[in-house]
């Protein structure tokens, strides 16, 4: 069994990472008081941007192209999220509806553009290569689990996770962000510009989701095809499952990553081959539902998430 776990670990982590970064993005947005159901669309936009840039640059620049693509995806994700910010902050639109519109626009517009560029709607690139980290990979247990066959982007996301924890809990910006999500009127009377903080929150979520979408592209997918298999919605569930806390999100996304990977490879694992794969496939979703029920009573949801704020 241990062999099985260590052998699927690189795949599970590769699946976890984009989910984690996107859920962290959702964290910024919801903590500022804006529900962002458009994460999925923002991921698609990131994946599309990354694919276009990397596809164009890769013949001449190789690995640098991937990083330029990731940066571009982050920036374009942030810009695209302005649509959601404008609708939900300035126009006080229903945030769930605006997010749904964002998802629809992203899914349709990117394929529309991709079809126009490549003819097929799919854009292929060469994915990042995996490597094992010297010294650390030789640590017993942990080395096998976490430091073998890793992607560079994984470490980037771990870095963002730690920074996010620090920013949200240890800086004045983080305090303001949380205040806007809990009680925007109190924040407002304390002289905080709620609109500005919420704009930053939404744009950070767009940036993270864009990066998440591009990470899917440069790691296990290698191709833009107009969707991200609902990962944005899963990230949203992971955010709630993780109770709107950075390390809670890490735990919930790791759970999703391992559960989904086990379901995907169950055919080749003797212990699991007996179970019809449908049970393993729906396992993560059912567990999430149960977790939502159990945590509902003590929900740590930002109190003002989803509520429009109007100054004065």
């Amino acid at each position: 069994m241990w062999d099985v776990i260590t052998s699927i670990s690189p795949y599970a982590i590769a699946y976890t990472v984009p989910l984690l970064i996107t859920a962290l993005g959702g964290l910024y947005s919801e903590r500022s008081g804006v529900v962002n159901i458009g994460l999925d669309g923002m991921m698609i936009v990131g994946s599309f941007t990354g694919a276009i840039i990397i596809n164009a640059l890769q013949p001449t620049m190789h690995d640098t192209a991937i990083w330029i693509g990731l940066i571009a995806a982050t920036i374009v994700g942030a810009i695209f999220s302005l649509l959601h910010a404008f609708a939900s902050i300035n126009l006080k639109a229903n945030q769930v509806i605006s997010g749904t519109a964002i998802n629809m626009i992203a899914g349709a517009l990117t394929v529309f553009l991709a079809r126009n560029i490549t003819g097929s709607g799919n854009i292929r690139i060469n994915a990042q290569s995996r490597y094992s980290i010297p010294i650390l990979k030789d640590i017993p247990i942990i080395g096998d689990l976490f430091f073998k066959q890793t992607y560079a982007t994984t470490w980037l996301v771990v870095f963002v996770l730690i920074i996010s924890w620090f920013v949200i809990y240890k800086t004045s910006f983080g305090l303001r962000l949380r205040a806007c999500g809990e009680h925007p009127h109190a924040a407002d009377s304390a002289g905080i510009n709620v609109y500005r903080i919420r704009y930053i929150g939404v744009m950070l979520s767009g940036a993270c989701a864009g990066l998440g979408g591009a990470i899917i592209l440069v790691t296990y997918s290698g191709e833009f095809n107009g969707n991200v298999a609902g990962m944005g919605f899963l990230a949203l569930a992971a955010l709630i499952f993780g109770q709107w806390k950075p390390f809670g999100i890490l735990a919930s996304t790791l759970f999703f990553g391992f559960a989904s990977t086990i379901a995907n490879v169950s055919r080749v694992i003797p212990e699991l081959a007996e179970i019809p794969s449908v049970y393993l496939k729906i396992f993560p979703y059912i567990v999430t539902l149960i977790a939502l029920i159990l945590s509902a009573k003590s929900s740590q949801a930002p109190r003002a998430a989803g509520e429009p704020f109007s100054h004065g």
């Binding site: 649509l83 404008f86 609708a87 126009l91 006080k92 639109a93 229903n94 509806i97 605006s98 749904t100 519109a101 964002i102 629809m104 626009i105 899914g107 349709a108 517009l109 394929v111 529309f112 079809r115 126009n116 709607g121």
Partner: peptide, 20 residues
């Protein structure tokens, strides 16, 4: 590309979401 139809629909929804 046929996706123009979905793009138009999505844009319409964005405008009706922001009907204010």
């Amino acid at each position: 590309p046929p996706e123009i139809a979905d793009t138009i629909i999505a844009t319409i929804i964005y405008f009706s979401a922001t009907s204010i």
